[in-house]
Computed example of a mutant assay.
Amino acid sequence: MKQVLCLVALLFCIVTPSFASAPSTFTEAKVIAKREIFFDQPDGPEGELYCGCKWQWVGKSGGRIDAESCGYEARKQASRAERTEWEHIVPAWTFGHQRQCWQNGGRKNCVATDPVFRAMEADLFNLYPSVGEVNGDRANFNYGMASNAAPQYGQCSTRVDFGAKTAEPRDKVKGLVARTTFYMFDRYNLSMSRQQQQLLMAWSKQYPVTAWERERNARIAKIVGYPNRFVTGERSWALGHKPTGEGIESRNTTAAATRQVANSKEPAPVTPAAVTSGEVIGNQRSGVYHLPSGCPSYGQVSAKNQVSFGSATEAVAAGFRKAGNCR
């Protein structure tokens, strides 16, 4: 018993600040981003990502675009143009394709089985409200120069070149998206083409850090425990940059400690590092999920088989079913 307690204590010690407070799911991240980061931005001078539009919050994390505030005109999808969506500056497709889980079953499989993917999907630095239509048009395209694309969204200067599969954001956020991309590729050990590196390095230099970008960075750092060092100036990107892989190392270290507890002679309780209050726990071996209340086996799923979800809806979407002994 003493050995198990020591291992549990060790697990608490090695969980880094970045994952002690960071959201564990994309759904949770959107709610936190609304409440803690963009709470005062709907009517602010910066606006949403691609067109600078103002918006009104709707529901837990959504919003309704004020098209007149930015001169926005729908290109094709009028209903989607009316709402905000949470854009992954580095698309989930981009970072997912560099994970084995995606090759074995796409995004659904990554959400269900890969804690590093879930961390990337929920990373607050990579999320920004945007006009839904532009978010959809951008899809998983890389950022680049869309000089062959005519204006598509009224006075909004963001352009999407569908033929070249390239999206060029408005000038005001080019530096922000560049430094966010550097952060994601550095933290999660992703590979970037030389051409993409050169373009983003140019944007980062041409469009320096703004007061809002610093404030956004500070707000996120307060939540997750560390900043985007490409914003603070502590880190810079050069051709051939070798990623630190800090995000992967943190996850692997925590997972290893959890497995060590699970494999000890005495059964170990589920620890706060693996389960947080209100979290839905799935068992990837049995394919069932357990709720924090009403499910007797909630605290009995071995750490090595645990998959966490923000809600039962997320668990079902990932292919899990509710445990039969839940009341």
Rank of each mutant, 00 (worst) to 15 (best):
P292W: 09
S311N: 13
K322N: 02
I281C: 11
V316E: 12
C295H: 04
P296H: 05
A315F: 06
G287P: 10
P272S: 11
G319A: 05
Y289T: 04
K322E: 06
A318M: 00
S264C: 09
E314N: 08
E266I: 09
A303N: 03
S286C: 02
V288K: 14
S264Y: 11
V270I: 10
S311L: 11
K265I: 05
A318L: 00
S264D: 13
E266T: 13
T258H: 11
N283T: 03
V261C: 15
F320P: 13
K322C: 08
N283G: 05
C295L: 04
P292S: 05
S286L: 09
G299R: 14
S293N: 14
V280G: 07
A323I: 00
H290Y: 13
Q306T: 01
G287L: 11
G299A: 12
G278V: 02
A317S: 15
G310C: 06
Q284P: 01
F320Q: 13
A318R: 04
S297M: 10
S277A: 14
V261G: 10
S302G: 02
R285E: 09
P272V: 03
S293Y: 07
E279I: 01
A317P: 07
P267T: 08
P296R: 05
S311V: 04
Q284K: 15
T313N: 11
G294Q: 06
Q306A: 05
S286F: 01
E266F: 09
G287A: 08
N263D: 07
S297L: 13
S302Q: 12
V316I: 03
I281N: 02
A273V: 15
S302P: 02
A323M: 01
G278E: 07
P296I: 06
K265G: 01
T313E: 14
S293R: 14
S311H: 11
S302D: 07
V280S: 11
A323F: 06
V280D: 07
V288T: 15
Q306P: 01
S277W: 09
V280W: 10
V316F: 00
S264Q: 11
S308V: 02
Q306R: 15
S302R: 05
P292V: 11
P292A: 12
G319I: 02
A315E: 07
A312I: 00
A318S: 08
